[in-house]
Write a protein that binds this DNA or RNA. Structure first.
Lengths: 341, 341
DNA sequence: CCAGTTGGTGTAATCGATTACATATCTTGT
DNA sequence: ACAAGATATGTAATCGATTACACCAACTGG
């Protein structure tokens, strides 16, 4: 095996104690100019690299953050990861990844990651955690090192970062309204999902506010996926009275919806205007390019990391109920158009 | 803070030494039935959780694997990650993620991850590593804990896992040929990329074998992205003599290509047949559904993990030149069709 | 019946960095 | 000139698990 040099080796070469070497590296201000130079020199000649396992043990920190995803294969999360990763690596932290499913299958407990010095904090991107797990986490003393992003859990006081979901739904409806649409449908995400619920509530509220008819069957329960979008399209086709526009709770839904329509020779936006949510990369390249509610996923990731880091570094400040709600924006492309009778 | 119990605590409760407790947990066969029971009981009452930092220090292992991506935000990698993650977590390992860019920016050296006990092995999904970095890695004694997946680096003997790229290109050309296409273009990936080069070579070889005309301008250099696909489409439109089919080195290219065409009122497959590579999730939902060369990304991830694990656990076996090449398959959808004069 | 093996357990060193405390030297003000 | 503080460094304990080695008891075979 490769033997790397240790603090001892550096100390010997620089002719100081290990304490001084350690101080030089982690807190250079407290040592004198001359030793600082000697130590730096010694570090260079020995090729010293800190042994993180040793540091972690001594400081009882891992200098890494765990990100928990519902599903690793979902591209929606990749940009958020990018944001988290760039932020944490900037602060000298590493990024651990796991999926809810795997944790569940392996029978591990989430809190163990914090207790066994694998992670200093956890960012959870999954609001559909098992309620037993949540129960166990929410009053634990480690709870202040857990943060939700994108999704959250109603009735808990975990800090969270998310986008303006209500405003997003409202903006979507308004946009369609301004294009003279009066019969507007909505395809939701998974039934119990907080995002689905929030967006649906805001959708209903705005429809009511605008005095639009809202047939219950025009709210189609889906699950954010492409295939749920296809199913929703089939329902739309079967309606005797068809809405002229639809607000989909995700871009994947919208894309699935449009695809299915096109297989039945309907055209978007000729036959129906479609607006999505998220503004994923493909939205722009889809045919037709998709009108969507954009959330800044990079910023969600960065903000989440910053908030979590603050809590890790300063655990005694009271951060309860910290919530960051980031703005959304309407991106108008070609899947929505003026309604023509 | 939360004080978790240690081996000492368990030992005290079970009335044995810490050595016995440690053995009971990591190697139950060597202790007697009765102590095993007493220790298990003690573990339960104390709520003992192993301190990984301590174990890592003592064993000089981190029980985690680093995956290095060129770009976290690229959804192509998410399924591969899923495969890696499920495999390593199955073996009790954790998954660390970093992007080439971040490593580069932070000035860290990849090899440090191995030396400083942050990772026991590295899976690299980026064949475009800085050549200086490669130079430094390839003869290092730690090199046997590094493995490439999807991409690889010509002229090194790192083990790698990849799909049948040549066969993929050949299959694509054949498919188009069998649909009576004789004028076939190719949009490549980034110029220096191994995948681009391999696929392009195989494309040329197959074209030659089939005795097809191969105008140099029909090979369009791109970069795997949607927008490169758009640019390529513009070139195609500008040709005086237009190929009737195109083999794109990635699905993203194909999608960008088709999108751009549709903006200029060309239709696929009416005006040109398009085949992609990868079979990403969107391929199926795109309009028209994309014919593509499918690679099993889940299996690439799993295989890569297994190979790496074998090397970590058994570093002295000679694994040099291990290479796994996984099969591809042709997925025929609607973006390719019989050529009609 | 005893040497040699096997099985089970304990003692204590060890991994490598951090840091509380002690010590030594140097200022500074009166 | 000297007490009091500031500055710089060293000594050694510590984090918590693993494991080489030693030990003892019980068994085996000749």
């Amino acid at each position: 095996m490769v033997k790397t040099s240790t603090l001892q080796d550096v100390a010997r070469v620089a002719n100081v104690s290990t304490a001084t070497v350690s101080r030089t590296l982690s807190n250079p201000d407290v040592v004198s100019e001359s030793t600082r130079q000697r130590v730096s020199e010694a570090v260079k000649v020995t090729g010293y690299r800190i042994n993180r396992a040793a540091r972690n043990l001594r400081t009882q920190r891992s200098y890494s953050v765990l990100v928990l995803l519902p599903d690793l294969a979902n591209p929606f999360f990749s940009t958020i990861l990018e944001g988290i990763s760039s932020q944490v690596s900037h602060e000298g932290y590493s990024l651990l990844i796991a999926s809810t499913k795997q944790i569940h299958e392996s029978g591990e407990r989430l809190i163990d990651y914090l207790d066994d010095v694998r992670a200093d904090g956890i960012i959870i991107l999954d609001g559909s955690l098992d309620s037993q797990v949540v129960e166990m986490l929410k009053d634990a003393p480690q709870a202040n090192r857990i943060l939700f992003a994108c999704e959250w859990i109603e009735g808990t006081k975990f800090p969270s970062v998310r986008c303006q979901n209500r405003n997003g739904a409202r903006t979507a409806v308004r946009h369609l309204y301004e294009l003279d649409h009066r019969k507007i449908a909505h395809v939701t995400g998974p039934k119990e999902n907080v995002l689905s619920i929030t967006r649906k509530e805001a959708f209903i509220k705005e429809m009511t506010q605008l005095n639009l008819v809202l047939k219950p069957e025009w709210i189609i329960t889906g699950d954010f996926s492409l295939s749920a979008g296809c199913l929703a399209a089939k329902k739309w086709i079967a309606f005797k009275e068809r809405p002229t526009a639809v607000f989909c709770a995700s871009d994947q839904l919208a894309i699935g919806f449009i695809s299915e329509l096109s297989r039945h020779n309907f055209k978007v936006p000729r036959d129906i205007s479609v607006i999505g949510f998220d503004d994923i990369d493909f939205a722009e390249q889809f045919i037709p390019p998709l009108t969507s509610i954009r959330q800044d996923r990079l910023m969600i990731g960065e903000t989440a990391s910053k908030m979590l880091m603050a809590r890790i570094i300063n655990p005694h400040d009271d951060h309860t109920n910290d919530t960051a709600i980031l703005p959304i924006s309407l991106v108008i492309r070609e899947s929505t158009a003026k309604y023509k009778t």
